[in-house]
Amino acid sequence: MSYEELLTEMGVADERFIAMTAENRALIRKLPQVLGNRFIDTGITEQTMIGAAAGLALRGRIPVVHALASFLSMRAFEFIRTDAGIPALPLKLSAFIPGLLSDANGPTHQAIEDISIMRGIPNMTVFAPADEDDMVKMLPQIWASPQPAYTRINTRQTSYVHEPFELGKAEVISKGTDVMILTYGLLFEQAMIALDMLKDEGLSVGLVNMRSLKPVDEQAILEAANSRLLVTLEDHFLTGGLYTIVAEVLLKHQKTANVLPFALNEKWFKPALLPAVMQHEGFNGKKIAEKILGYQTEHIQPEILKPQFAE
């Protein structure tokens, strides 16, 4: 099932659903014919769209709003904070092309601080599906919740079949004693590649899909921190995202861990097609595996040989 099919199904079944967009119809081109006057395009006016959505929510509607992640999280931030977060209205924010999915776009269109921005809003919940299968399993619960929600939309298809979703719970793919990788969104598929490469080098490696970032699964983080090396992998700035979440959880529970973060450190990524972006920024599976193994060799298990991954 696709995003559009899911929203169509839920919109037909429940007249409270309103589909709204700030002239961003890439995911919902067929909905105007299905929903009629319950489809609203406000034009390139993200702030107006959020204000109108809040009014509809006050009348018992469930507005699902669509815009580019960079503009939704930043241009409309004050409106989301004031009109959705503070009154805890059930606005459902569908953020298109977040993180590296914005590949060929420059800094103005790169949403790589959105997790930090959105999780700081009172009552806001924040989610980042690993792929399309994960997303369509997550959204029914997210949209059924009475709280406002920000979701990084991810329509990429992978071969992985995800477990059912539960609000506030991570998906533990596997456990490892040498390395545990925590990730979310687009980079899940690259983490899977790195996982296999590291296992081939003799390491015990685990992977956790941190699909729910607020509320976050603290127990999953604490258990992962028992490994020799905890890796955070995200297409987001280092500050405010998963690395920061992990630090907050460990400090809260007075626990320490050896943590290796993969993130964008106060710089925007170089625009290009997605494979080239991931290669250049060090976010493809091979580069992730090489960096992890190199760190293991230098800091944790010196007897491990330097990685010799094939091109």
Rank of each mutant, 00 (worst) to 15 (best):
Y3S: 04
E9Y: 06
G11P: 02
V12F: 03
T21I: 06
R25C: 02
K30L: 09
P32F: 01
L35Y: 12
I40G: 01
I44L: 14
E46T: 10
A52W: 02
G55I: 09
G60W: 05
V65R: 00
H66N: 10
H66K: 03
L68E: 02
F71Y: 11
L72K: 04
T82N: 14
T82G: 00
D83E: 13
A84S: 11
A84T: 08
G85A: 06
P87K: 05
K92N: 11
S94Q: 13
L101M: 14
A104L: 10
M118I: 09
F127N: 06
M138Y: 05
L139N: 02
I142T: 02
W143F: 15
I153L: 15
T158P: 12
S159C: 05
S174R: 11
S174C: 09
V179S: 07
M180V: 11
L182N: 06
T183L: 05
L186F: 13
L187T: 07
A191C: 11
A191K: 09
D196K: 15
K199E: 12
L203H: 11
V216C: 09
D217M: 04
A220M: 09
I221R: 08
L230C: 12
H236L: 08
T239S: 15
G241C: 14
T244Y: 00
L251C: 07
L260H: 11
L264M: 14
N265P: 04
W268S: 08
E281D: 05
K291Q: 15
K291A: 15
I292Q: 03
G294R: 11
T297W: 01
E311D: 14
